[in-house]
Computed example of a mutant assay.
Amino acid sequence: MENFQNIVVEIVDQTAVVRINRESKLNALNKETIAELKHAVASLAENNEVRGLVLTGTGPKAFVAGADIQEFLAKSKAEAMELSAFGHELMDRLANFPKPVIAAVNGFALGGGLELAMACHIRIASSNAKMGLPEVSLGLIPGYGGTQRLPQLVGKAKALEMMLSGEMIDAADAHKWGLVNKVVEQEVLMEEVYSLLNKMYAKSRNAIATAIEVVNTGFNAEQDGYKAEINAFGQCFGSDDFKEGVSAFLEKRKPDFK
């Protein structure tokens, strides 16, 4: 993996840990950081040694505390739409990543930072984390998928409350509303993430990729998630993982997925 200016990529056993590394800016997302993340995500998707991906921020304060507002100055409408589309490409790559993606939310996740976390499949937060979409305070709306993903996670009414007030919620409230899967103390955050991923690594790589794909299909208004499930279920029956999984179950042993 090449050297990046704004992110750090480390492979720990079978897990790729990607840290947004702009601590002095509270890890704010600028265009260069988004470009580096897109490049890293594309490369890691092709790396067969990597079974899962973790996104987190450097330092104890922030996951990503929003977009870099300096970049917004003097942009035309067309340039703003181009920037939004550029961010959407990253979020869509994460959402459709064929391996588990966990956001380790280690502090503030605001604006583009919360949108980045929501694009991940699972979110585990440290107890000090705070989340929100404060764009209305700038006369804006979320531009990296937040208007669509937040209602999917917390429901329309809570999403609108958060977006229209621009106020933050704490980790406990985020957990109550289903925005994060679990809340732990910051010092054990990565340990918790690795523990969950290791449970997944013991399962079929093919089945995990298929499940991610079919679940995402159900959120696409142009596709029929139920039909996709039927087709994918049938496809699994032809896989080596299925044969090994069933054999292991009948023989009362742990499966050895290749």
Results as ranks from 00 to 15, higher is better:
A35I: 00
A35H: 08
E36M: 09
L37K: 11
H39D: 14
H39L: 12
H39T: 14
A40K: 07
A40Y: 06
V41K: 07
V41E: 05
V41A: 10
S43H: 13
S43Q: 15
L44P: 06
A45P: 00
A45S: 14
E46N: 14
E46W: 00
N47V: 02
N47K: 14
E49Y: 08
V50G: 08
V50C: 14
G52S: 15
L53D: 13
L53H: 12
V54G: 03
V54I: 15
L55M: 15
L55S: 03
L55E: 02
T56W: 05
T56D: 02
T56N: 00
G57A: 05
G57W: 06
G57M: 06
G57E: 07
T58G: 11
P60L: 01
P60C: 01
P60Y: 09
P60T: 08
K61H: 14
K61D: 15
F63H: 07
F63Q: 02
F63G: 01
A67N: 07
A67Q: 01
A67H: 03
D68L: 14
D68S: 12
I69C: 00
I69F: 04
I69R: 11
Q70C: 04
E71K: 05
E71A: 05
A74N: 15
A74M: 13
K75L: 15
A78V: 12
A78L: 09
E79K: 00
E79I: 02
E79H: 00
M81V: 11
M81Y: 10
S84I: 04
S84Q: 03
F86L: 08
G87K: 09
H88W: 00
H88F: 00
L90F: 09
L90E: 05
M91Y: 04
D92K: 13
R93N: 12
R93Y: 04
L94Q: 01
L94S: 00
A95P: 06
A95I: 02
N96F: 02
F97D: 06
F97E: 06
F97S: 07
K99E: 08
K99A: 04
P100M: 12
P100I: 10
V101A: 14
I102F: 05
I102M: 06
I102Q: 01
A103Q: 10
A104Q: 01
A104D: 02
A104P: 01
V105C: 12
V105L: 13
V105K: 10
N106V: 04
N106S: 11
N106E: 10
N106W: 05
G107P: 02
F108R: 12
A109S: 12
A109P: 04
A109K: 04
A109Y: 09
L110D: 05
L110R: 13
L110F: 11
L110I: 15
G112A: 14
G113A: 11
G113Y: 14
L114I: 04
L114C: 09
L114G: 07
L114T: 06
L116R: 08
M118F: 06
A119Y: 07
A119Q: 10
C120W: 01
C120I: 01
C120M: 03
H121Y: 03
I122V: 08
I122R: 12
R123M: 13
